[in-house]
Simulated assay, not measured.
Amino acid sequence: MTEIPICRPPRRRRRIAAHLAAALLLSLTSGAALGGAAAPAQQQSLLQRLRDLIGYNPRQAVGGSRSGSGPEICLITPRFQPGDASATAPATATVALASPTLLAAGPLNEVRLERDGRILWQQLASSTKPIEGPITWPLEPLQPGESLLLRLRPRGAAGADFATIQLVAAGSADQQRAATLLGSGSSRLALIEANAQTGRSALASELLFAPLQQSSPAVDKLRQEVIAQGCGINLAGP
């Protein structure tokens, strides 16, 4: 029986092929490692950009003082426009969501919602437990154009010293648009980004702190970034 010879590639060719295979494997593993490292960095960059686009409220004096010597409130959300310099008109927050979340950066002694001098809702801190963290809207949803006073008393302030922000519900078209966005099932972060990048920073802030049905690590991280930024005093680093 005649043995059929096996053709083998020259040794030098085999060595080149082995080197190429090793180089390809190294390239693939290195690329995967770099991609894994780049993704969190890219997300962090996006969150920081969104934090800056959403911006922050100025600190609001309590007790009607604008001298800067008295206690102040740092309201994270909703975003508001400062009142006039004479303090005859309060700061005003126009809210698109019918049930906006309320959040101050520091501990509070008291939170009120009022209309025409009548308290519609009130929360009081105890001597050992201040009011902290987000407050889910405690009343019936706001009707288009409805107006209330949000009154906040920080820890340590006298009993009559409040920061006052007028909450004004947006018109029906804006309310409907905000409700549609919130119920659309789209990524919350994508909705926040779309509104922040088109100049709707107040709506982006409302969407950011609106309750989530399912936890989102990216949204939680952005919330932390915005809270850490506070009212521009404790500006979070890049």
Rank of each mutant, 00 (worst) to 15 (best):
M1W: 12
M1V: 13
P5Q: 14
P9I: 09
R11S: 14
I16Y: 07
I16C: 04
A18R: 13
L25H: 07
G31H: 06
A33T: 10
L34R: 07
G35W: 06
A37Y: 03
A37P: 02
A41Y: 10
Q42G: 04
Q42P: 01
Q43A: 13
L47T: 02
R49L: 13
R51I: 00
Q60I: 15
V62F: 06
G68D: 13
L75V: 15
L75M: 15
I76G: 06
R79E: 09
P82H: 12
S86L: 13
T94N: 11
L103N: 10
A104T: 15
A104G: 14
P107K: 04
N109Q: 15
V111M: 13
V111S: 05
V111F: 00
I119G: 05
L120N: 06
Q123G: 08
A125D: 08
S126W: 00
T128R: 13
K129R: 14
P130Y: 07
P138T: 10
L139V: 01
L139K: 03
L142A: 11
L148Q: 04
L149A: 14
R151C: 12
R155D: 10
G159C: 00
L167P: 03
A169C: 03
A169F: 08
A169P: 00
A190I: 02
A194P: 01
A196M: 06
S201A: 15
S201I: 03
L203V: 05
S205W: 02
E206D: 02
A210K: 01
Q214N: 10
S215G: 04
S215E: 07
A218N: 07
D220M: 07
K221G: 00
E225P: 01
V226A: 05
I227G: 02
G230P: 02
C231D: 01
C231R: 07
I233H: 06
N234H: 10
G237M: 05
